[in-house]
Amino acid sequence: MSRLVCRHSWLWLVALASAACWAQGAAPAAWPNQPLKIIVGFPAGSSPDLTARLFAEPLSKALGQPVIVDNKVGAGGNIAADAVAKARDDHTIGLMINGNLTIAKQLNPALPYDPLQDFAPLSLIGTAPLVLTAPVDPSGVSASARDFFAAARKGGDRWNYGTPGVGTVGHIGTELLKSRSRINPVHVPYPGYAQVASALLGGQLQMALLPPALAQAQVRAGKLRAIGVTSAGRSLLAPELPSLAEAGIEDFQLEIWNAFAAPASMPAAIRSRLAALIGDLARSQEMRDKLFQQGWQTVGSSPEGLANRIQADARLLGGVIAAHRIEAR
């Protein structure tokens, strides 16, 4: 995996250097001369779709052209990512989840696009931790996070954990957590997070990493308990919950995120303009508030910031993929 990252590192450096050289210049006078398309790999009403639509109207006003959200659903967002990678009209970008930009190719070498070669990063938009969630203790005693991990070590492979599928961030992240915490639950994949939560409620699972909104709804209803968040420290999205570092799990950080990326073929001057517009919009207080309501802690990074995050996560999660020989199914 590390060879995969290193092999293309120079491509990122060249692309970013090129973008920097054009940063003081303007996009071609005739651009945009048609609607801008944002391709999203998930259905209408999904989190990526809602985020893309938040940006569509203000981007349209800034560019003086319509901005269209185009949902190309399937293969965990990889169909849409491939469409972005192959776009050559200079008016197409993508709103993608972290898996498409970091681990997709490492899970499936036959993937028709290369995340590290075929995209130009624009801006990291929002991040969110996952929440380590468990059934409510039948004794009624609210055990500490340290007690939970002690019980998990004792439970060994008699415990099960659920995810929305093989190769998802929840799957790879839990395997990383297993190695950092010395626990050994067995993976049980489900079609989606809703089914994972149902299995937790039904007692078929002893633990799972869930998105904050889903976890908090069940925890506040008293139906599940939250052990901690997977971010390095406490998260503004769930400030009442400890980080797993507070539970003694050292050197562990895992977040889901979304980001805008352009085809690598898009001229650098156009990419620079789009990156600046998107970053400024993301960092505005109005957009921060709207993204927070969707369950995101806003970043609005530079292209360099997104490139660094992609490479860091590709190394971290790719190491788990290689160590456990995880393959897309």
Rank of each mutant, 00 (worst) to 15 (best):
M1R: 09
L4A: 13
L4P: 06
V5T: 09
C6D: 15
C6S: 15
H8D: 13
H8C: 03
S9A: 14
L11N: 06
W12C: 01
A15G: 12
L16E: 06
A19I: 11
A19Y: 13
W22E: 14
A23S: 15
P28I: 06
A30D: 15
A30V: 11
A30R: 12
Q34K: 13
I39T: 09
G41N: 10
G45F: 03
P48L: 03
D49S: 12
R53P: 03
F55H: 00
F55T: 02
E57Q: 14
L59A: 00
S60I: 12
V67D: 02
D70I: 10
K72R: 15
A80W: 01
A81M: 03
A83G: 10
K86N: 10
A87W: 04
A87N: 02
L95W: 12
G99D: 05
G99A: 14
T102F: 07
I103G: 05
K105V: 02
K105A: 12
Q106H: 01
L111R: 13
D118P: 05
S123Y: 07
L124S: 07
L124D: 07
T127I: 12
L130V: 03
L130N: 06
V131L: 12
T133A: 04
P135F: 12
G140F: 10
S142Y: 09
S144I: 05
A145L: 05
D147S: 14
F149K: 02
A151F: 01
A152R: 00
D157L: 07
W159P: 01
T163M: 00
P164W: 08
V166R: 05
G167E: 09
G170C: 11
E175I: 05
L176Q: 10
L176S: 08
L176R: 14
K178P: 08
S181P: 04
N184C: 12
P185F: 06
V186A: 09
V186F: 06
P189M: 07
G192T: 09
G192Q: 13
A194P: 07
Q195M: 06
S198D: 15
L200I: 02
L200E: 02
Q204C: 04
Q206I: 02
M207Y: 03
P211T: 08
P212V: 12
A213L: 14
Q218L: 15
R220G: 05
R220E: 12
A221C: 07
G222W: 12
I227C: 01
V229T: 05
V229I: 13
S231I: 04
A232C: 01
S235K: 06
S235N: 09
L241N: 03
A245D: 01
G248N: 02
P263R: 03
A264P: 04
S265L: 10
I270V: 11
R271K: 13
S272K: 03
L274M: 02
I278W: 01
I278L: 15
G279L: 03
G279T: 04
D280E: 13
D280P: 02
L281S: 01
S284L: 01
M287S: 10
R288P: 06
K290R: 15
L291F: 11
Q293K: 14
G300R: 08
S302N: 13
S302P: 03
A307T: 00
A307S: 14
A312T: 13
D313M: 13
L316Y: 09
L317E: 11
G318H: 07
A323C: 00
H324P: 06
I326T: 00
E327R: 15
A328P: 08
